[in-house]
Design a protein around this nucleic acid. Structure first.
Lengths: 251, 251
DNA sequence: GGCGCTCCAATTGCATGCAGTTTGGCGCGC
DNA sequence: GCGCGCCAAACTGCATGCAATTGGAGCGCC
């Protein structure tokens, strides 16, 4: 039936969005870790486009919070602070709460089937790499959001879900995905039953447990941005025991 | 105190974001109405930059949903369909619900003073133009969001609030801002008192009334995109009473 | 008058070029 | 050995140029 035109807002389908999608996926699958450098040249070369286009793509990703752009500096995959990661998960919990509240009892049979199929796919990758299971788990949440048929909600949930993926490689320890899959199934069941309160509770706890596994330590030892790490010591800068800091070995 | 570096995510402070801010403001004040054309050349000339930069800015605004970008076509200020406008308001109501729930009873005295100052400013513009009062009213909501100190929430609330402004010029009739101001005051009072349920209710009704005044008619006569208008008739395309349509007078 | 056609100005899509900034490594003095 | 400064390579910021596409005016034909 020729879905005319498709999205009219963003993601036109030009080369820019191709690059965006590729990078998003690379990030979500942790092929690109936080802090990874993204020089315009290399991107352009890799995707067969000029720097102009690569640059534009980086701009879009920066707007989504996946990439950090600092003037005259190489773009890098975003490295959220622990605070920012916490924020992302908090907002995510609330947003997805809205999603399931809106969806409870409203799903058609075919939608429920689609969700179950997706979780089956998650199940099948249990032996596979982490990369794929993380991606599928994330896509499950995006799939839910899409069923609200609210484009805005879809966008926000996607964005914040991607950001949360980012933090996984930063602060989390290798985790088992099994419980997540079971929780996904439980959520589908509650949605089908139309138990709004139950499903909100389930989603809340599901994301909460993901968050608590993802954000194990508030003190990221490999955390970057020295300036932030040193902030607590700044007040004592005038003390007599000043540690002589060299230019600061930024890397 | 030199607020070091500022936002590290988007809005670097380069020429691109200057243009973005200018356009956002022009849109919010309805100097640029939905559908207004935004040729890269003109923008570049107007802001003293090259097309490259203007283009980049348009890309950012498109990502925020304020601008529509279609391949090989002049960018235009977004013209949300009634459906999309409804969606924006729905999400906005929910997002701002999250904001006030989080804020109830948690505001400091100085924050409350800041809010009151803002509403005073709104009050003072009662005689002024609509443009300014709409902007101030919107900024009140963004100010609230900022007090959550959740950058993500701030961004989403801002975005969706801007989008709602867009629909004002499309579907709304000239309105009085007085009640809005009173409602703002009531919200502040309830926030100060820490009555979470009450303030969520107030905010909900406040935005609901704004929405119902903004979205008076589901049938935008000046709505563009003829194809959408004609969609309901599409099924009868094979009927014998076919209205002979010319190529479609797109403007 | 309405309809279709052609052609041209306007506009976008994209690559490239140049200037300015940052990075990191090398050598020099201590 | 260690720190410091300098320099070249790498990279970004941005403007400009060229090809491709669009849309609309003009014009002939029915």
């Amino acid at each position: 039936m020729a879905a005319r035109a498709s999205h009219k807002t963003s993601e036109s389908s030009d080369k820019v969005s191709v690059i965006c999608r590729a990078l998003r996926r690379a990030i979500i699958e942790q092929a690109l870790e936080p802090g990874a450098k993204l020089p315009e040249d290399s991107l352009g070369e890799r995707f067969g486009v000029s720097r102009t286009i690569a640059r534009h793509a980086l701009g879009q990703l920066a707007a989504e919070g996946l990439v950090e752009l600092r003037r005259n500096r190489i773009a890098v995959v975003a490295t959220p602070s622990w605070q920012e990661a916490r924020d992302a998960f908090d907002i995510r919990i609330q947003l997805e709460g809205l999603v399931v509240r809106q969806l409870a009892g409203k799903l058609t049979k075919s939608q429920i089937a689609e969700l179950n199929d997706h979780v089956d796919a998650e199940d099948r990758t249990r032996g596979g790499t982490d990369a794929v299971s993380i991606r599928l788990a994330t896509e499950f949440h995006i799939l839910l959001a899409q069923m609200t048929s609210s484009p805005i909600l879809v966008r926000y949930v996607s964005e914040v879900a991607y950001r949360c993926c980012l933090t996984l490689s930063l602060y989390s320890r290798p985790h088992s995905t099994e419980c997540a899959i079971n929780e996904h199934r439980a959520i589908i069941a509650a949605l089908a039953k139309g138990d709004g309160a139950k499903v909100m509770d389930l989603m809340h706890h599901h994301l909460d447990s993901v968050a608590s596994r993802a954000l194990v330590a508030p003190a990221p030892q490999r955390g970057r941005d020295l300036l932030d790490i040193l902030a607590p010591y700044a007040d004592e800068a005038t003390s007599d025991r000043v540690v002589k800091l060299p230019k600061v070995a930024r890397r």
